[in-house]
Design a protein around this nucleic acid. Sequence first.
RNA 1: GCGGAUGUAGCUCAGCAGGUAGAGUACCAGAUUGUGGCUCUGGUUGUCGCGGGUUCGAGCCCCGUCAUUCGCCCCA
Length: 416
Amino acid sequence: MIQSVRGTKDTLPSEISKWHFIEEKIREVTKTYGYKELRTPIFEKTEVFSRSIGENTDIVNKEMYTFTDKGGESVTLRPEQTAALIRSVVQNNLTHDISNLRLYYIGPYFRYERPQKGRLRQFHQFGAECISSPNPEADVEIILMANKLINRLGINQYTLEINSLGNDASRATFRKELTQYLNSHREKLSVESQNRLLTNPLRVLDSKDSNDRKVIENAPNILDSLDEESKKHFESVIKLLDTAKLDYKIEPNLVRGLDYYCHTVFEFKSNSLGAQDAFGGGGRYDKLIEQMGGKPTPAVGFAMGIERLILILDSIEDNVDLSDKTDIYVVCNDEKLFGVSLQITEKLREKNYKVVSDLNRRSFKSQMREADKFSSKFCIIVGDDEYSRNSVIVKNMQTSEQAEIAIDLLNTITFK
RNA sequence: GCGGAUGUAGCUCAGCAGGUAGAGUACCAGAUUGUGGCUCUGGUUGUCGCGGGUUCGAGCCCCGUCAUUCGCCCCA
């Protein structure tokens, strides 16, 4: 037996209705916000990601699926969408004739990591990007849209954490201050954090190590070192969220791992996910487009993990009814009638009913049992007796009522 | 990349002093010859993850490997 590759998963027919449900909600919600889908290739030139996400991030230096193609070019299976999407926006000049470019995406992404609950090597994300606006309204639009989707999916138990990393200038100031503080407690930090102190000190704030946490408790607060511009932006975002009556928690230690973020960053967290408790997150990235060769253009966006959404949906007791009932199961009591039954089945499908019948020539009783197993609302019994009168029996499986109906009249009946 | 746990019928699991496997469920068939869901009866299913070793003999012991899972790292 050949097994699927580690960290990859089949989505079986029994699971697929959840995916369809989520996809449907995504299309529904993004549409109401005026977002359009953009699809990019599954793989890109490696530099698309290495340049944008940050050389010092784990994603780039240890998690990318990178290989050299036959032409000698280094290509990478996309580990996330934002960088590739921006590449496409710049390449196709999409900002040229529109004041606000609103885009969403959904698809598979790849990271070479040790699989864990809610973490696969091929996983799926949905996300959206609002491009061109430097204003807090854009941040809030993105957060509200993400939040709306979560609610439409029937998820109520979660928290929204929000923070501001400030602009380049204020972040540089804070970085200096923080590095100084952390250096003075260097020996108390974990090995990982000592390393991060050199590569990306802000991320020490994110550490789960209990000793690190003690040091972090008294660390300088990033919100205190925001400059006027950054402070004003963050305060407006908060005010707009209040107006929208959205619950959030300001979390000064929330630092996202990708280098391109500035100003607003946020995460949606759930307690039904284990250690990987974030199921969505995002932030503002005002410098990325310029960095990717476009004209300086501010933007903000978010991404959500679909596998993680499914884990949350599974943990909800009375979640949405996704059962998939068959409208009509056609049964017959004689081998000679399987042909007739097929004809009737086909005619009903013409009217868009979901109709199924037995293909194994099994006994009448077995067919009835299967009609039940498929949760059929109706079954049509093609019996030799009735057939001799050009009719069949229509049985309502919920009420057990049945009646003999002329075959010619079947298309006048509503099977609902 | 690092640490812990696990891997037996489709699914959930039992098997224990090492002697060539069992339960529930699911599935299939039947219960006076044309009617499902409940009940009853009968039946099918496994290279006991894979490879090697120890042993007269291994699902059970040892080594390796693959996979899953829970953490770390990081992120969705």
